[in-house]
Amino acid sequence: MTGFTKWHKATPVAAAILLLAGPASAQDPVTWRMTHAFAETSTFYQLFALPFAERVAQLTDGQVVIQPYPAGVIAPSFEAYDAVLDGAADAVQSSAVNIVNRDPANALFSTFPGGMGPEALWQWMWYGGGRELLAEHRRETMDLHALPCGMGATELFAQSHKPLKTLADFQGVKFRTVGSFADVLTAIGAAPTVVPGDEVYTMLERGAIDAAEWGSPSENLKAGLHETAKYIIYPGVHTNAFFQEFAVRAELWDALSPELQGKVTAACELSSMDTLAAFDALDRKAWAELKQGNNEIVRLDDEVVERIREEGRKWIYARADEGDASGNPWVRKVAESYFAFYDDWIGNTSFRAVDHRAEPSAD
């Protein structure tokens, strides 16, 4: 048993779910091969895939076995969903940001530029209608059953060879990203480059790109990105929070008993809480280390942050208009739910205290 799983067992919510789960049914054990979107050494794989598989086995008393495979074993990162659709894998754990081109609604199920922060996104997904929309969307469009299953907090905005601070600083900047943020970068004058994460270090090191967004402080530190470029840019308004999802072929999910379906769902909800807490602990430690290092920390001007938020909304509603015209109702349907929740959150949480202050920025 990993230390991560020992930690989650001590939480009251996890203990309650384990208690309520009860004994497993007598049906034969089910084994699913799960491809993952990240490499074996990645924090995303270590904190998401491995503990989730262990938790499923624990909650189901071994009646459901998840066999996780890192990116590149069954399929490359960007082809993880296709591996399930083609039958090479039974299930996938990935961020839907990798399939935004399949349907722009996927941006809202994963990470959205200028979108919700961790607590708001978690509540929308699990208690605000997001989970139901995700399940319905996957059933209708991909013949999969999907659950939000692992969450991370705010990423660093960029590791950069240039001190990005104002809108003027973005003009012509070659910026690595994925998903809808590529179009947002174009709108503010940058030149986005969409490549898998395992190419980021080399491209930055060789100067093939000017800047790159990749992950949170702990993941960027682990990847050594601070060694490749002088400037660390924050806040990560492009990814205020993100979800991974677990998606399995619908016929395999439907073959489970309702009892086992409930236990796998509980495993995903626990994973959503635990990964967020674990990531946050790692990120605070990594941010403290990065601030003591040789990089320069640069804070984006508020004008840039607000412009990215504006361009993100403009992008999704432009895609909704296109969807309406082409007979795809999903973009608007998901966007209306997402932003109704987000606007309510913005309008009715001002009573809360703020527990952080902005870091001083290098001029």
Rank of each mutant, 00 (worst) to 15 (best):
F242M: 10
R284V: 08
Q244D: 10
L270R: 04
L256F: 09
R284E: 10
V298S: 06
A250M: 04
I297D: 00
A267L: 11
D280S: 15
A278W: 09
G236F: 03
D274V: 01
E269D: 10
E296D: 15
E213D: 04
A286H: 04
E269N: 08
R299H: 10
K263D: 04
S257E: 08
I209Y: 01
Q244S: 14
Y201C: 01
F243G: 03
L290Y: 01
A267T: 13
K291T: 07
D274C: 06
E251P: 09
S216V: 10
A208S: 09
T228L: 03
L270A: 04
L256Y: 08
N295K: 08
D283N: 15
E213G: 06
A281V: 12
A241Q: 08
A211H: 03
A223C: 00
L282I: 02
I232M: 05
L260E: 15
E259W: 10
P235W: 06
Y201W: 13
S218E: 11
A288C: 00
K285P: 01
K291Y: 00
S272F: 05
A241Y: 05
G236Y: 02
N240C: 11
A229P: 05
M203C: 02
T202V: 02
G236D: 04
Q244K: 13
A247W: 05
M273H: 10
S216N: 12
G293M: 07
N220V: 07
V298C: 09
A208G: 02
V248F: 07
W253T: 11
L204V: 01
K222R: 15
T228Y: 02
E213V: 13
F246E: 07
Q261D: 07
Q244M: 13
F246M: 09
E251A: 13
P217Y: 05
P258K: 13
I297M: 13
F246T: 04
I209D: 02
H238E: 10
S216Q: 08
W253Y: 10
P235Q: 07
S257C: 05
L204H: 02
L221N: 07
C268G: 09
K291H: 01
V298N: 07
A267G: 14
A278H: 13
Q292A: 15
E213W: 04
L260C: 05
M203Y: 03
A211V: 03
H238L: 09
A250T: 12
A250I: 14
A266E: 10
S216Y: 04
I232C: 02
E269M: 12
T265P: 00
W287H: 06
A208M: 06
A267S: 15
G236W: 03
V248T: 11
L260M: 15
A286K: 06
L276K: 03
R299D: 08
G293F: 06
Q244Y: 14
Q244A: 11
A255C: 09
